[in-house]
Design a protein around this nucleic acid. Structure first.
Lengths: 135, 135
DNA sequence: CTCAAATGATACCACTAAGGTATCATTTGT
DNA sequence: ACAAATGATACCTTAGTGGTATCATTTGAG
Protein backbone atom coordinates (compact mmCIF):
# COMPACT_ATOMS: atom_id res chain seq x y z
CA UNK A 1 0.00 0.00 0.00
CA UNK A 2 1.09 3.51 -0.52
CA UNK A 3 0.14 6.52 1.47
CA UNK A 4 1.74 8.76 -1.13
CA UNK A 5 1.09 8.43 -4.82
CA UNK A 6 3.79 8.94 -7.39
CA UNK A 7 2.39 12.35 -8.31
CA UNK A 8 2.69 13.53 -4.75
CA UNK A 9 6.17 12.13 -4.41
CA UNK A 10 7.38 13.80 -7.60
CA UNK A 11 5.69 17.02 -6.62
CA UNK A 12 7.52 17.08 -3.31
CA UNK A 13 10.85 16.42 -4.99
CA UNK A 14 10.26 19.14 -7.54
CA UNK A 15 9.16 21.64 -4.93
CA UNK A 16 12.15 20.89 -2.73
CA UNK A 17 14.45 21.42 -5.66
CA UNK A 18 12.83 24.69 -6.57
CA UNK A 19 12.83 25.91 -3.00
CA UNK A 20 16.51 25.18 -2.53
CA UNK A 21 17.61 26.54 -5.89
CA UNK A 22 16.09 30.00 -6.11
CA UNK A 23 17.41 30.98 -9.50
CA UNK A 24 14.46 32.22 -11.45
CA UNK A 25 12.61 29.84 -13.71
CA UNK A 26 12.98 26.08 -13.70
CA UNK A 27 11.83 24.13 -16.72
CA UNK A 28 10.65 20.56 -16.98
CA UNK A 29 13.87 19.83 -18.82
CA UNK A 30 15.89 21.15 -15.87
CA UNK A 31 14.04 18.95 -13.44
CA UNK A 32 14.40 16.00 -15.74
CA UNK A 33 18.14 16.56 -15.73
CA UNK A 34 18.34 17.05 -11.99
CA UNK A 35 15.90 14.49 -10.67
CA UNK A 36 15.92 11.86 -13.41
CA UNK A 37 12.19 11.39 -13.42
CA UNK A 38 9.95 10.62 -16.43
CA UNK A 39 9.69 13.96 -18.16
CA UNK A 40 6.10 14.06 -19.51
CA UNK A 41 4.78 12.83 -16.20
CA UNK A 42 6.71 15.48 -14.33
CA UNK A 43 5.36 18.04 -16.73
CA UNK A 44 1.80 17.11 -15.93
CA UNK A 45 2.65 17.25 -12.26
CA UNK A 46 4.07 20.77 -12.56
CA UNK A 47 1.04 21.95 -14.47
CA UNK A 48 -1.14 20.65 -11.70
CA UNK A 49 0.98 22.43 -9.12
CA UNK A 50 0.61 25.60 -11.12
CA UNK A 51 -3.15 25.31 -11.27
CA UNK A 52 -3.21 24.63 -7.56
CA UNK A 53 -1.39 27.90 -6.94
CA UNK A 54 2.02 26.65 -5.84
CA UNK A 55 3.85 27.66 -8.99
CA UNK A 56 3.74 30.46 -11.48
CA UNK A 57 4.54 29.64 -15.09
CA UNK A 58 6.04 31.43 -18.08
CA UNK A 59 5.38 30.11 -21.53
CA UNK A 60 7.65 30.25 -24.55
CA UNK A 61 11.35 29.85 -25.08
CA UNK A 62 13.35 30.02 -21.83
CA UNK A 63 10.09 29.65 -20.00
CA UNK A 64 9.44 27.48 -16.99
CA UNK A 65 8.01 27.42 -13.48
CA UNK A 66 8.73 29.30 -10.30
CA UNK A 67 7.75 28.62 -6.71
CA UNK A 68 5.40 31.30 -5.44
CA UNK A 69 4.51 29.96 -2.03
CA UNK A 70 6.81 29.94 0.98
CA UNK A 71 7.85 26.37 1.89
CA UNK A 72 6.59 26.85 5.42
CA UNK A 73 3.08 27.28 4.07
CA UNK A 74 3.12 24.17 1.89
CA UNK A 75 1.63 21.37 3.94
CA UNK A 76 2.18 17.80 2.93
CA UNK A 77 -1.49 17.01 3.43
CA UNK A 78 -2.51 19.74 0.99
CA UNK A 79 -0.21 18.40 -1.69
CA UNK A 80 -1.66 14.96 -1.17
CA UNK A 81 -5.12 16.37 -1.46
CA UNK A 82 -4.25 17.95 -4.79
CA UNK A 83 -3.02 14.71 -6.31
CA UNK A 84 -4.89 12.05 -4.41
CA UNK A 85 -8.07 13.67 -3.23
CA UNK A 86 -9.28 13.48 0.32
CA UNK A 87 -7.10 11.38 2.54
CA UNK A 88 -8.83 8.45 4.12
CA UNK A 89 -7.82 5.03 5.32
CA UNK A 90 -11.31 3.60 5.37
CA UNK A 91 -12.71 4.75 2.10
CA UNK A 92 -15.22 2.83 0.12
CA UNK A 93 -16.30 0.23 2.62
CA UNK A 94 -18.23 2.89 4.45
CA UNK A 95 -20.32 3.89 1.49
CA UNK A 96 -21.43 0.44 0.55
CA UNK A 97 -24.31 -1.40 2.10
CA UNK A 98 -21.95 -2.92 4.62
CA UNK A 99 -21.66 -1.58 8.13
CA UNK A 100 -25.26 -2.51 8.74
CA UNK A 101 -23.75 -5.05 11.03
CA UNK A 102 -23.30 -3.34 14.38
CA UNK A 103 -20.80 -5.89 15.53
CA UNK A 104 -18.14 -4.83 13.06
CA UNK A 105 -18.44 -1.12 13.51
CA UNK A 106 -15.73 -1.16 16.17
CA UNK A 107 -13.48 -2.16 13.32
CA UNK A 108 -14.43 1.03 11.51
CA UNK A 109 -13.87 2.99 14.67
CA UNK A 110 -10.36 1.62 14.90
CA UNK A 111 -9.61 2.54 11.33
CA UNK A 112 -11.05 5.99 11.84
CA UNK A 113 -8.86 6.51 14.89
CA UNK A 114 -5.75 5.58 12.98
CA UNK A 115 -6.79 7.80 10.14
CA UNK A 116 -6.99 10.71 12.54
CA UNK A 117 -3.51 10.03 13.88
CA UNK A 118 -2.12 9.98 10.39
CA UNK A 119 -3.89 13.08 9.12
CA UNK A 120 -2.88 15.01 12.21
CA UNK A 121 0.70 14.20 11.41
CA UNK A 122 0.30 15.05 7.74
CA UNK A 123 -1.16 18.40 8.62
CA UNK A 124 1.84 19.20 10.76
CA UNK A 125 4.47 18.55 8.13
CA UNK A 126 5.40 21.32 5.71
CA UNK A 127 7.84 21.51 2.85
CA UNK A 128 10.07 23.62 5.07
CA UNK A 129 10.20 20.77 7.60
CA UNK A 130 11.20 18.31 4.92
CA UNK A 131 13.95 20.58 3.68
CA UNK A 132 15.21 21.17 7.22
CA UNK A 133 15.26 17.44 8.00
CA UNK A 134 17.02 16.70 4.75
CA UNK A 135 20.08 18.67 5.67
CA UNK B 1 -7.48 4.51 0.07
CA UNK B 2 -8.20 1.56 2.20
CA UNK B 3 -6.19 0.24 5.06
CA UNK B 4 -8.32 -2.90 5.15
CA UNK B 5 -9.12 -4.91 2.07
CA UNK B 6 -12.48 -6.49 1.55
CA UNK B 7 -11.10 -9.93 2.39
CA UNK B 8 -9.91 -8.71 5.74
CA UNK B 9 -13.17 -6.98 6.44
CA UNK B 10 -15.23 -10.03 5.59
CA UNK B 11 -12.90 -12.23 7.57
CA UNK B 12 -13.37 -10.07 10.65
CA UNK B 13 -17.13 -10.13 10.27
CA UNK B 14 -17.17 -13.89 9.85
CA UNK B 15 -14.88 -14.46 12.80
CA UNK B 16 -16.91 -12.17 15.03
CA UNK B 17 -20.05 -14.06 14.09
CA UNK B 18 -18.46 -17.40 14.80
CA UNK B 19 -16.97 -16.24 18.06
CA UNK B 20 -20.29 -14.91 19.34
CA UNK B 21 -22.36 -17.87 18.14
CA UNK B 22 -20.58 -20.92 19.47
CA UNK B 23 -22.90 -23.57 18.09
CA UNK B 24 -20.75 -26.10 16.33
CA UNK B 25 -20.21 -25.77 12.64
CA UNK B 26 -21.03 -22.73 10.57
CA UNK B 27 -21.35 -23.13 6.81
CA UNK B 28 -20.82 -20.58 4.07
CA UNK B 29 -24.56 -20.67 3.53
CA UNK B 30 -25.15 -19.73 7.17
CA UNK B 31 -22.84 -16.75 6.92
CA UNK B 32 -24.39 -15.73 3.65
CA UNK B 33 -27.75 -15.70 5.37
CA UNK B 34 -26.51 -13.82 8.42
CA UNK B 35 -24.10 -11.30 6.93
CA UNK B 36 -25.48 -10.85 3.43
CA UNK B 37 -22.11 -10.96 1.76
CA UNK B 38 -21.24 -12.40 -1.66
CA UNK B 39 -21.22 -16.13 -1.04
CA UNK B 40 -18.42 -17.44 -3.27
CA UNK B 41 -16.14 -14.67 -2.12
CA UNK B 42 -16.87 -15.44 1.50
CA UNK B 43 -16.19 -19.08 0.80
CA UNK B 44 -12.75 -18.29 -0.50
CA UNK B 45 -12.15 -16.14 2.52
CA UNK B 46 -13.11 -18.93 4.92
CA UNK B 47 -10.86 -21.38 3.13
CA UNK B 48 -8.02 -18.97 3.54
CA UNK B 49 -8.77 -18.60 7.24
CA UNK B 50 -8.77 -22.36 7.54
CA UNK B 51 -5.39 -22.69 5.87
CA UNK B 52 -4.06 -19.96 8.11
CA UNK B 53 -5.09 -21.95 11.16
CA UNK B 54 -7.97 -19.87 12.48
CA UNK B 55 -10.68 -22.31 11.50
CA UNK B 56 -11.16 -26.05 11.31
CA UNK B 57 -13.31 -27.45 8.55
CA UNK B 58 -15.56 -30.46 8.03
CA UNK B 59 -16.39 -31.55 4.52
CA UNK B 60 -19.55 -33.18 3.29
CA UNK B 61 -23.21 -32.75 4.07
CA UNK B 62 -23.81 -30.68 7.22
CA UNK B 63 -20.20 -29.67 7.11
CA UNK B 64 -18.79 -26.24 7.73
CA UNK B 65 -16.21 -24.28 9.68
CA UNK B 66 -15.44 -23.78 13.31
CA UNK B 67 -13.32 -21.24 15.14
CA UNK B 68 -10.35 -22.91 16.76
CA UNK B 69 -8.44 -19.93 18.09
CA UNK B 70 -9.46 -17.84 21.10
CA UNK B 71 -10.55 -14.33 20.01
CA UNK B 72 -8.03 -12.75 22.35
CA UNK B 73 -5.24 -14.35 20.34
CA UNK B 74 -6.47 -13.18 16.97
CA UNK B 75 -4.73 -9.92 16.21
CA UNK B 76 -6.05 -7.62 13.56
CA UNK B 77 -2.60 -7.15 12.11
CA UNK B 78 -2.20 -10.89 11.61
CA UNK B 79 -5.47 -11.14 9.74
CA UNK B 80 -4.41 -8.28 7.53
CA UNK B 81 -1.13 -10.00 6.89
CA UNK B 82 -2.95 -13.14 5.77
CA UNK B 83 -5.06 -11.30 3.21
CA UNK B 84 -2.97 -8.31 2.32
CA UNK B 85 0.59 -9.32 2.94
CA UNK B 86 2.98 -7.19 4.93
CA UNK B 87 1.51 -3.91 6.04
CA UNK B 88 3.28 -0.87 4.75
CA UNK B 89 2.34 2.67 3.96
CA UNK B 90 5.39 3.39 1.83
CA UNK B 91 5.59 0.34 -0.34
CA UNK B 92 6.91 0.36 -3.83
CA UNK B 93 8.56 3.74 -3.99
CA UNK B 94 11.35 2.43 -1.81
CA UNK B 95 12.24 -0.42 -4.10
CA UNK B 96 12.54 1.60 -7.25
CA UNK B 97 15.54 3.58 -8.25
CA UNK B 98 14.09 6.60 -6.52
CA UNK B 99 15.24 7.79 -3.15
CA UNK B 100 18.69 8.39 -4.55
CA UNK B 101 17.86 11.98 -3.93
CA UNK B 102 18.92 12.70 -0.38
CA UNK B 103 16.72 15.73 -0.14
CA UNK B 104 13.49 13.79 -0.26
CA UNK B 105 14.39 11.05 2.15
CA UNK B 106 12.87 13.00 5.04
CA UNK B 107 9.61 12.38 3.24
CA UNK B 108 10.22 8.65 3.50
CA UNK B 109 11.12 9.04 7.13
CA UNK B 110 7.79 10.74 7.79
CA UNK B 111 5.89 7.97 6.09
CA UNK B 112 7.85 5.35 7.97
CA UNK B 113 7.04 7.05 11.26
CA UNK B 114 3.35 7.05 10.50
CA UNK B 115 3.54 3.45 9.42
CA UNK B 116 5.00 2.57 12.79
CA UNK B 117 2.22 4.35 14.64
CA UNK B 118 -0.37 2.48 12.64
CA UNK B 119 1.18 -0.96 12.92
CA UNK B 120 1.66 -0.50 16.66
CA UNK B 121 -2.04 0.12 16.92
CA UNK B 122 -2.92 -2.79 14.67
CA UNK B 123 -0.81 -5.13 16.75
CA UNK B 124 -2.67 -4.09 19.87
CA UNK B 125 -6.16 -4.82 18.58
CA UNK B 126 -7.54 -8.35 18.84
CA UNK B 127 -10.82 -9.90 17.81
CA UNK B 128 -11.78 -9.97 21.46
CA UNK B 129 -11.33 -6.20 21.62
CA UNK B 130 -13.56 -5.69 18.63
CA UNK B 131 -16.26 -7.90 20.11
CA UNK B 132 -16.04 -6.10 23.44
CA UNK B 133 -16.29 -2.67 21.83
CA UNK B 134 -19.21 -3.77 19.71
CA UNK B 135 -21.44 -4.44 22.68
C1' DC C 1 11.10 37.10 -38.98
C1' DT C 2 11.61 32.66 -38.13
C1' DC C 3 12.24 28.88 -35.33
C1' DA C 4 13.16 26.18 -31.51
C1' DA C 5 11.95 25.73 -26.88
C1' DA C 6 8.86 26.01 -23.65
C1' DT C 7 3.96 25.52 -21.40
C1' DG C 8 -1.55 24.62 -21.84
C1' DA C 9 -4.79 21.29 -22.54
C1' DT C 10 -6.25 16.92 -23.23
C1' DA C 11 -6.74 12.37 -24.93
C1' DC C 12 -4.97 8.03 -24.90
C1' DC C 13 -2.62 3.66 -23.40
C1' DA C 14 -0.84 -0.35 -20.51
C1' DC C 15 -0.51 -2.72 -16.37
C1' DT C 16 -1.85 -4.30 -12.01
C1' DA C 17 -4.55 -5.43 -8.07
C1' DA C 18 -8.99 -5.88 -6.09
C1' DG C 19 -13.32 -7.82 -6.07
C1' DG C 20 -15.94 -11.35 -7.59
C1' DT C 21 -17.55 -15.68 -10.28
C1' DA C 22 -17.44 -20.45 -12.01
C1' DT C 23 -16.20 -25.13 -12.21
C1' DC C 24 -14.88 -29.60 -11.07
C1' DA C 25 -13.39 -32.83 -7.68
C1' DT C 26 -14.04 -34.80 -3.21
C1' DT C 27 -16.26 -35.89 1.07
C1' DT C 28 -20.14 -37.32 3.96
C1' DG C 29 -24.66 -37.33 6.55
C1' DT C 30 -29.35 -38.83 5.53
C1' DA D 1 -27.79 -42.75 -4.07
C1' DC D 2 -27.84 -38.03 -3.59
C1' DA D 3 -27.71 -33.54 -1.97
C1' DA D 4 -24.97 -30.51 0.63
C1' DA D 5 -20.93 -29.13 1.94
C1' DT D 6 -15.65 -27.98 1.39
C1' DG D 7 -10.88 -28.17 -1.55
C1' DA D 8 -8.64 -26.36 -5.24
C1' DT D 9 -8.11 -23.48 -8.86
C1' DA D 10 -8.89 -20.85 -12.91
C1' DC D 11 -11.10 -17.13 -14.80
C1' DC D 12 -13.32 -12.56 -15.44
C1' DT D 13 -14.23 -7.51 -14.94
C1' DT D 14 -13.27 -3.02 -13.39
C1' DA D 15 -10.92 1.03 -11.66
C1' DG D 16 -6.91 3.30 -10.49
C1' DT D 17 -2.10 4.25 -11.18
C1' DG D 18 1.67 5.45 -13.88
C1' DG D 19 2.95 7.02 -18.11
C1' DT D 20 2.88 8.66 -23.21
C1' DA D 21 1.47 11.41 -27.23
C1' DT D 22 -0.36 15.20 -29.65
C1' DC D 23 -1.72 19.63 -30.99
C1' DA D 24 -2.13 24.39 -29.96
C1' DT D 25 -0.04 28.50 -28.18
C1' DT D 26 3.50 31.55 -26.59
C1' DT D 27 7.99 33.79 -26.75
C1' DG D 28 13.07 34.68 -26.41
C1' DA D 29 17.08 34.42 -29.39
C1' DG D 30 19.60 34.46 -33.64
Amino acid sequence: MNLLSRDTDYAVRALIYMATHEQGLVSTADLDRELKLPRPFMRKTLQTLQKAGYLSSVKGNRGGFKLVMPPAKIRLIDLMQVFQGNISLGDCLFKKKLCTCVATCPLRREVKDMEEMVTARLKAVTLADLIRNGK
